[in-house]
């Protein structure tokens, strides 16, 4: 790897990191505005024009608050919990193809940090270790409400991971690759995977809601039963990290949904416009972000429309509906794949 390549990768890493944080920051603002819109209110409008500086004000407030570590808490793990949560939230962006190829001078480079040939498994691995941040923080707080919240979160995430994994397997059976880049390239023009895997997409979407602990699956922090859930004992920026990580997760989940099922940076008829390759790449990236913003809006729309489940309903949905459905989808996909390869 020569110096230019290294520099380009470095710029790419930093910009993906920065963009994730920026989008997560403004998702908090968007969430309040969407909530206000759905409830016929105005929402935040005091800080700056249209309240646009509200996330900055919130951030400053979080940093300025007194930091409390409970006397009986496990100090190291208490700090490690939110840190891990942020770490796993930021890790997935590495394998997402943010765009096609850009040519500057003689150098051509990909708008993807790394194209490992196990991209999907990497995403799944990061998702599966994401639960540690919550569990460690919950246990280290030494508070029974925190522990209950943590246990709820982890059992919920484990349950929905299974259905998510099976829906990904069905997707891999149709695409025949684990590399995110190749999956996006196969979906050129209108061949989006949503058309081939509608049921798989539905399962993946529901599981993405459960994995990010968003309503209607936000039982881990159910205020009426568990005070604040796993972050009951947290204050100041450590609480901020937990809340913020949820928004980063939401952004990354939206990016994954757009990548796997909605064609990533592809868009129908973009080839027929007769644009230069660089322009196509830039438009593709912008469209990709458009798709991501749509999914983020969808997450918020659902949050302010649907009430949360009861815990046994959530478990029933996970084990008795989602997993059989995912298996059924896998079965159908297998039969169709065999049929298309001329087995019958």
């Amino acid at each position: 790897m020569d110096t230019t390549e290294f520099l380009i990768k470095l710029i790419l890493v930093i910009s993906v990191f920065g963009i994730s944080l920026l989008i997560a920051m403004y998702s908090t603002y968007a969430e309040r505005k969407v909530a206000a819109f759905l409830q016929d209110r105005l929402g935040p409008n005091r800080a700056g024009p249209f309240g646009i500086l509200q996330p900055v004000a919130d951030g400053v407030k979080m940093f300025m608050k007194e930091e409390i570590i409970p006397a009986n808490a496990d100090k190291f793990l208490f700090i490690a919990g939110p840190s891990l949560m942020m770490l796993t939230a930021c890790m997935t962006g590495v394998v997402i193809p943010w765009g096609g190829e850009l040519t500057i001078g003689r150098n051509t480079f990909n708008l993807q940090i790394t194209d490992v040939n196990i991209g999907l498994l990497y995403i799944f691995g990061v998702v599966s270790i994401g639960v540690y941040g919550i569990m460690i923080g919950a246990w280290a707080s030494n508070n029974k409400y925190s522990l209950m919240g943590g246990l709820r979160a982890s059992s919920q995430m484990i349950s929905y991971e299974l259905a998510m994994g099976i829906s990904i397997i069905a997707l891999v059976m149709t695409t025949g690759t684990l590399s995110t880049k190749e999956i996006v390239e196969q979906q050129s023009s209108w061949h989006w995977n949503i058309l081939y895997q509608p049921l798989g997409f539905l399962i993946f979407l529901v599981c993405a809601f459960a994995e990010t602990n968003r309503t209607p699956f936000d039982l881990p922090e159910c205020e009426t039963e568990l005070i604040g859930g796993f972050h009951t004992e947290y204050s100041s920026m450590k609480l901020g990290f937990y809340l913020f990580a949820e928004y980063i997760n939401m952004f990354i989940s939206s990016a994954i949904l757009a990548t796997l099922y909605f064609g990533g940076y592809n868009f129908p008829f973009i080839e027929s416009w007769g644009l230069s390759p660089n322009a196509v790449t830039i438009i593709g990236t912008l469209l990709f972000f458009g798709k991501i913003f749509f999914f983020i809006f969808f997450f918020m729309w659902v949050r302010w429309t649907i009430p949360r489940f009861r815990y046994d309903q959530l478990m029933n949905l996970g084990w008795k509906v989602m997993i059989p459905l995912a298996l059924f989808n896998l079965f159908i996909t297998g039969i169709i794949t065999l049929w298309r390869n001329g087995a019958f």
């Binding site: 270790i129 569990m135 982890s154």
Partner: peptide, 17 residues
């Protein structure tokens, strides 16, 4: 990847649980 998913991501979470 499978090692992380299966052992760290699933089995050890149940242990911790």
């Amino acid at each position: 990847a499978v090692h992380v998913i299966v052992y760290a991501g699933a089995i050890m979470v149940l242990f911790l649980f």
